[in-house]
Amino acid sequence: MTVTTIDGHQIHVDAEGFLTDNQEWDDKLATALAAAIGIELTEAHWKAIRFLREDYARQGETATIRRVSTVGGIPIKELFVLFPQKPAKKMAYVAGLPKPHGCV
């Protein structure tokens, strides 16, 4: 287990840097995590992050890109614009969740 500090927030992370303690997450931390990977959060980003958090609370696992698009209603193209290159991992990171395990 690793403890690190991101913009003044002390958090527990796994070997890849993803938050391991859900309770440490709040909106301020999300903004700091996003900034750390070069993303400035807009309302569109928040819509995806909120969906991810709510879906995780219900399902117990992180939604894949496909699920964010089909269930969360955010088109895949838009996700690639909001979280460039690796939308699934970047969204999960900012939302303070583990990276998704599903293949599709």
Binding site: T2, F18, G38, K86, Y93
Partner: peptide
């Protein structure tokens, strides 16, 4: 382990 600032290297 404590690391000053540890961020995934996505890019």
């Amino acid at each position: 382990e404590t690391m000053p600032t540890f961020v995934p290297q996505f890019d």
